[in-house]
Amino acid sequence: MLLRNTAIELQSVSFAYRSFPVLEEVSLRVEDGEFLGIVGPNAGGKSTLLKLILGLLHPHAGTIDVLGGRPAEARQKLGYVPQHPSFPRDFPITVEQSVLLGRLGTGRRRPGILSPGRYTKSDRNAAFEALTEVEADGLANRQIDSLSGGQLQRVLLARALVSEPAILILDEPTANIDQRIESDIFDLLKRLNVRMTILVVSHDIAFISSYVERVACINRSLVCHPTDAIDGQVIQDLYGEEVRMVAHNHTHNPLTEEHQ
């Protein structure tokens, strides 16, 4: 295998909310073009890890390098799909307008974010392309409030894609939607992975194992596994108790047997 460049590198990163440690001595190297799954129990530090990489939180110890710089500097080259939308659903905004917001700060000059005025023709084209890519182009004029959970997830994904990010970061993108759409969205991510690095947090290790190359297991500390090496012991170590795994109907799934 060719040696790939480093997209993200964490070295001995620790983080605590007040005196409650969330991450301890976490080291992780993500290569360019990798599709990394992040799993772990609730409150195990998955979302915290993403927010550290996005520069929304700062580590108390250790260093984080994203695309060769500090997280806050690389931020505009990252696309982020949050677990819960951080806006009120009844906000008077159409799908197209919310996707166009992702075009802010995409200019070649950094002060582009301060530039006054309207969106350009190329901004609108990019928004249309992003919506087409997530198969939501028919929703452009709909109000955010009228979308189903799956539709909203596609729109949030389009908003992250419209800035043509080098790294796409998703926090539980399929937590609130049914399984048929879940596999649709992961199929889409698999296609996007051809041109961008993807980090995806999931609670469902069995499901994502059929898509990602490698799984990072986080429960305060972090252990990485290639997806073909995951067995019941790994999961038991991670969650700290015996876990009954449910087999999903996917081909090439290494986890089709049940572990008691």
């Binding site: 931020r75 806006f87 992702g102 800035s163």
Partner: peptide
């Protein structure tokens, strides 16, 4: 969306 605005710089 303040968080998203912040991430766009």
């Amino acid at each position: 969306d303040e968080e998203f605005a912040c991430l766009r710089g």
